[in-house]
Nucleic acid binder design. Structure first.
Lengths: 196, 196
DNA sequence: AAGATCATGTAAAGAGTTACATGATTCG
DNA sequence: CGAATCATGTAACTCTTTACATGATCTT
């Protein structure tokens, strides 16, 4: 149940329309809690019905017309309550790591490419985070920004870890392929069927 | 669409019943792709219907009776195909980090406790991984085990990162609280309402 | 006027979670 | 025999994803 609270946080930082929220989720908050515009519109509807937010008065409220929301006192209270309690830790799922285990059983065909692809993605994300870091957090003083920087440092740390791990994994796989070549004497056998 | 492939991998490693699979998911594969017994039973039904696995012949196939599954050639082919292609990277969601952003807006009440709680959880998981590492991977030689060890090292690296980050976060928050005390001159104000 | 883009939405399918139901076996 | 445990399953719900629908505004 974190999406509504992510939205409340975003709206407290700055009242926004559904599409504006969607864009902001693509950048900052969405790094740790991504959401599509469909999820956001649905959740905005629920939050409005619950009395946590309200649409700012507009001349012509209609479909296709921008509709801005702001957080009501009840919404702030809800967020405060949520932020004071315990979060239930959601399980982590990672398909790439799963694939490594599959490769141990059905062979390493294509594994190298996939590791490289992920390495590029993580390097890119890391660069993005570091750019934000140097742009937004030069000399940090106030508590709000210190907390937000902690969030960013989580992102940087995670991406750094993945880059390192992927480089290690690539080296390891290359080494395995080299050994397989040496033993079998064959040429470009990337589809080694280990575990058979 | 990774759960069926996680199950195929597990069944190739060793044919199992639904409950046995559930237990194995609690330990090894489940570290990166957790699943409950309900998910597993449902998926086993689908995999069987698709002709990817079959139930080993049993004397009395009935409800409440153990039912073991093994992977058929079509299932192996499916897993091989999946493992050779690109995985779509699933978005990462992290409620704790979200909570930090919320704390930047509605205050840090209870934040310290929550960080400490997560620190304990991650320390425990790290210890578990390291125990597995020293128990199962003494001198590694064959490719299958080298790949499985890479998986484990991903777990160890991730948990190590979180432990470090949480310690850093705790220190930072403590420092903020100390400063708030100094400025306001008040006593134990952990509910500082930043951003108001 | 046509096309691109902004903006809000609906529908349906898929994945994951929670609660409950039921039969078989084992142990005191 | 009764209780605990092993084992398989159903049902209902929530959350997420994907595809599509529709109106408003701006540009050429």
């Amino acid at each position: 149940m974190s999406l509504p609270h992510a939205i409340l946080t975003a709206l407290l930082e700055k009242p926004s329309s559904g599409l504006e929220l969607t864009r902001r989720f693509d950048r900052s908050i969405g790094y740790f809690w991504p959401a599509t515009h469909q999820q956001i519109y649905r959740e905005l509807g629920k939050l409005e019905q619950a009395g946590f937010i309200r649409a700012l008065p507009s001349e012509r409220p209609a479909r296709g017309q921008k509709k801005e929301f702001e957080v009501l006192p009840a919404g702030r209270a809800e967020l405060t309550a949520w932020a004071s309690g315990e979060q239930d830790t959601k399980p982590v799922r990672n398909a790439l790591v799963l694939r490594l285990r599959a490769a141990a059983v059905v062979g390493r065909a294509g594994l190298d490419d996939e590791l490289r692809r992920h390495l590029t993605l993580h390097q890119r994300q890391l660069a993005e985070y570091e750019e934000i870091d140097s742009r937004d957090f030069g000399a940090v003083a106030d508590p709000e920004d210190r907390l937000r920087r902690l969030v960013l440092r989580a992102g940087i740390g995670l991406e750094t870890f993945w880059v390192q791990w992927l480089e290690e994994a690539l080296a390891e796989v290359a080494d395995m392929d080299a050994e397989a070549d040496g033993e079998a004497g064959s040429g470009a056998d990337t589809g080694v069927r280990a575990g058979e």
